[in-house]
Each structure stands twice: as C-alpha cells, then as structure tokens.
Nucleic acid binder design. Structure first.
Lengths: 232, 232
DNA sequence: GTCTATAATTAGATAGAC
DNA sequence: GTCTATCTAATTATAGAC
C-alpha cells in the first residue's frame, strides 16, 4: 500500500550496480519494519523511539525518514506487515477459513485452534493492537477500518449462524468476540509477565496446545449435542 | 506505602491555616494520582507526559516532583490506587471472596460475575497492567510481586480444587487464569476500539450482564452435573 | 505548598557530504 | 542510498521567588 520511494526516476536501464543498491535498500526497509514491529509492540507508538528502531535494524535513525515519510508511516507499514504474517500463519494452521462455506461446529473448533497457534507465534500483533485500542486516535481509526472490522464481521457471522441453529451456547456475538480474542491472546501478549509469574518455560508448545483445547471446550462445550438440534 | 512529604517538621501545633494547607496538599496529591491513572492507562508509562498529568489534575508540572519523588513514584502510587479501587469494587459485588472457605461452583460463578462487573467499571487498571506486561522492566517486576501473584494463587487454588473434584472442565490452571482475565477484561480495556467497531453504546450495562452470564456459562458449563461427581 | 523560570536530556525530522 | 551533523520542539527534573 505504501509506495516505496521512486528508485528509477527516469528511463535509465537497470545496471548491476543499481540492482544491488535496490536490493540493499529493500533489505534496509524490511529490517526497519521488523525492528519497528518489535519496538512498537514492546513500548507503544509514543514510547518507541526511532533511534531504538534504527539501532535494532542495524542502520541509522535518518533512514526512517528516507524510507518512510514519518514515524507514523513506519508504524502503518509495520502494522500491515504483522497482519500479513497473521494471515499466513492462519492459512498454515487450517485448510479452510471461516467464510468459505456453511459454518459447522467442527470448522469453528479448527478455526479456534488455528487462532491460538497463530497468535502464540505472533504476540507482537496483539500487543500493538491493544496498545492502540486503549485510547482513541487516528491510528486506531485506521487500524479498525483496515484490519479489524472484516475479521470481526467474519467471526460474528459464523457464531451467529451456529447460535441460530442451537449448535453453540446462546451468547451474544459481541460478547463472544471480545471473550475469544482476549482469552486467546492475553497469555502471549503478557508473556513477560507470565514468565515472572509462572517461570521461564510456562508458555511453551504444550501450553499452546492445552490452551487451544481448553478454549474449544469453553466456547463450544465438551461435545456436540447429539440429535436434538434443528436448523432455523 | 509511599510516605507523604513531611508536613510538620517540628512540634508546631496544628493551626487552622496549616490544617487548610494540608487539606489542599492532600487534594493536589489525590488529583495527581487520579490524573496519572487516566494518562498512564491511555498512553503507557513512557507515552504519558507529566505535563499532561499535571494539566489534567488542574495543577502545574513541578508539583509532581514535589509530591512524589519522580514520575516512577507517581506511577507506583497510581497503581496502588487502582488496585485499592479494584478490591473495593470486588467487595461491593460479592459477599465472600474466593479464599474464605471451601470453594464451590456457585461461589466461583459469583466471583466471575463480580470480576466482570468490577473490571467493567475500572478499565484503567487492566490497561495499565497490559501496557506494562508487554515488556519486562523493574515496573513489571514490582507489579507482579506486589499485586498480581497473590491474586493468581487465589484463582489457581480455587480452580484446582474444583477441577480435582470434577466440578469443572479438566483445563490447566494457567490456561484458565489467562483465559479468564483476557476474556473478562478485553472489551473494557479496548473500549475505544469497541466504540468504533460496534457503535457508541455497545459496551453498556446490558453488555456487562450478558458478558458476566456468558463467561459463567463458558467457564463453568451451562449447569452443574447433577449427582455423578465424587469428591477426591 | 504552589508558582514561574529554566536546566539537562532526548525526541523526530532535515541538510548536505559522499 | 547511506552516512554525519544538527535543528527545533518536547521531555523530566530542579532552583528559587512568594
């Protein structure tokens, strides 16, 4: 979405030297984005300094204003980057998404497991989300319209469909949305706290699997009701 | 815990004037703490400025260093303040706590409802907690040992007791802790986002009650199993 | 105790050499 | 494109009048 700064201003043919320069520039840009993800997640937008980001990226602070218009634009590029990684992780953890076909209890169970595994390996995304969601701002408006609303609608429709068919508990979609996101992300968002509270190795792969199973039980019940449910 | 600056340096008897001065000072101190709660919750420790806190408190920025040693000490006073409010809110919403006697399913259900109602009216506490928990720091160490660990132990013991007696699903205490805190707090922590996503009045009293009921259903099941459960 | 003025540091952004 | 040097504005904390 953010255009890279124009690197071929006129019609000069791409020589080997300019191609190497471009590759170096792309590497710098990516390193800045990944460093920004880490720093914004840890300290919030205002708490993260562009100097710390540049140092983590192995470059110098003015590079941020060269490759991005401003700290704000770097933040947007970082957010787009982690959401792209989320979609990749979700795709890796489940064959079909929520929206593909008529939702079933088992499909939602698979989706919940996929969400838990994905957010476990991508804690920065939900750290950034929550840092921004605590106060209204232009950044919050941007992130809600660009990344949040579509995902909310998908989950709300899936839950609503199951709820109307009595395949899940009679709980409001808005309640389920925040309960599921909160219940699935907090242990990873708060991993530094969890390490102090529970020990260094408390949030490991076994925890993630127990967490996924636990949330499926909590949100979908121990077992699908045999027989009695009738469609709307 | 933090001693107020000594206001009676020698043995001068308290005149009406000095008593009025002291009352004014106490009011300034409290106004600073409450403004600090708001600003730290909205912007995090590093993102909140002492000028903004002083302005919100209706006083001037150097008052912070007079009434508190530093921004850091003000933060600690603010955290103690919101945890005291949490305890008051929890006490108002339930007769007995988790630790009073042998835990029962109904007692835990009451506790969950009390937690939801309390965190709904005190979103600043969980905003501050989550802002700090995303990165390790001296502040995180302080808050975990001073405020978090005891509450974690209480809930983990209660759940473990019910779990051993097969009165709740067989889910690990650590999973339940983060799932419950996340599921109960996120809608209020993220209220600015929820307003953009769902509309201005989505997180109202009816939501809180539906939320409380929904979490009881999710964590404790729709109904206690009649008969079959045997104690350990 | 509360105020104004200011010191010392650090922030994001820019200029210009190479 | 990347670097060094630096500008302007904002930060926390302190000094000193009242």
């Amino acid at each position: 979405m953010a255009d890279p700064p124009a690197s071929s201003p006129s019609s000069s043919p791409p020589t080997s030297a300019t191609r190497r320069r471009q590759a170096r520039a792309d590497a710098t840009r990516l390193a800045l984005i990944e460093a920004a993800v880490h720093e914004f997640a840890a300290h919030g937008f205002e708490g993260a300094s562009t100097r710390a980001i540049a140092t983590r990226a192995g470059t110098h602070q003015p590079q941020i204003n060269y490759h991005f218009e401003s700290k704000d634009e770097l933040w947007r590029a970082a957010v787009d980057h982690v959401f792209a990684k989320l979609d990749a992780a979700l795709a890796a953890h489940q064959i079909e998404g929520l929206g593909a076909d008529e939702i079933t209890r088992d499909r939602l169970a698979d989706a919940i497991r996929a969400i838990v595994r994905a957010v476990a390996q991508l804690p920065e995304l939900n750290r950034i989300m929550i840092q921004e969601a605590t106060a209204d701002s232009d950044r919050l408006a941007w992130i809600v319209e660009r990344h949040t609303r579509g995902r909310y609608d998908l989950l709300a429709e899936a839950w609503g469909s199951l709820r109307r068919r009595r395949l899940v508990a009679d709980i409001d979609e808005t309640v389920v949305y925040y309960a599921l996101i909160g219940a699935s992300t907090l242990a990873y968002v708060n991993a530094p706290e969890a390490r102090r509270l529970l020990g260094d190795h408390a949030i490991d792969d076994a925890f993630v699997e127990a967490h996924a199973d636990g949330l499926v039980t909590m949100f979908l019940g121990p077992e699908p009701a045999a027989g009695g449910a009738s469609a709307d």
